[in-house]
């Protein structure tokens, strides 16, 4: 059976750090490099921030995070039941944002470049599911 955890958090910004640290703690057991671990925490932080800033813009809703490990591959799914994304291609464009002046518009760009695979499914008015996959490098213990 594959290893899997589920976390449900309210979309409050103080929960951003909890989400990435919890996912990081799960992934740490696979013995990733520091870079791989930081990449995953950063990608999770982006996805959760999107739920807070965009999906549940003027409200507090639940964010559903599922993390699983199969072999050396980590799969992370982050789901919300918020407003949905009208144009996913546009939302993914670097520097495009509807989040105001202080948002860089790089959330999806970070998720895309810091993981191996990113899939976004969204229905306006129903919500968004972001799925990310990343392979953890296998260390050769025999050389120690």
């Amino acid at each position: 059976m594959k290893d899997e955890i589920k976390i449900v958090i309210p979309s409050r910004s103080q929960n951003e750090s909890f989400a990435r640290v919890a996912v990081g703690a799960f992934v740490a057991r696979l013995d990733p490099t520091l870079e791989e671990l930081n990449d995953i925490k950063t990608a999770v932080s982006e996805a959760v921030t999107n739920c807070i800033v965009h999906a549940y813009r003027d409200t507090i809703g639940k964010i559903y995070i599922t993390v699983s490990a199969e072999g050396e591959t980590v799969k992370i799914r982050i789901r919300d039941y918020g407003c949905g994304i009208e144009d996913i291609d546009k939302a993914k464009q670097p520097l495009f944002t509807t989040g105001g002046e202080e948002r860089a518009g790089l959330g999806f760009a970070v998720m895309e470049s810091f993981t191996d695979k990113l899939r976004v499914r969204s229905t306006v008015g129903k919500g968004t599911t972001v799925t990310m996959q990343k392979k953890i490098s296998v260390k050769d213990d025999t050389k120690k």
């Binding site: 930081n38 925490k41 950063t42 982006e46 202080e102 959330g107 970070v110």
Partner: peptide, 13 residues
């Protein structure tokens, strides 16, 4: 110790 794209927004701003 950690920064996501919010840090980029902070610098650009």
């Amino acid at each position: 110790s950690f920064m996501d794209s919010s840090g980029i927004g902070l610098v650009m701003g």
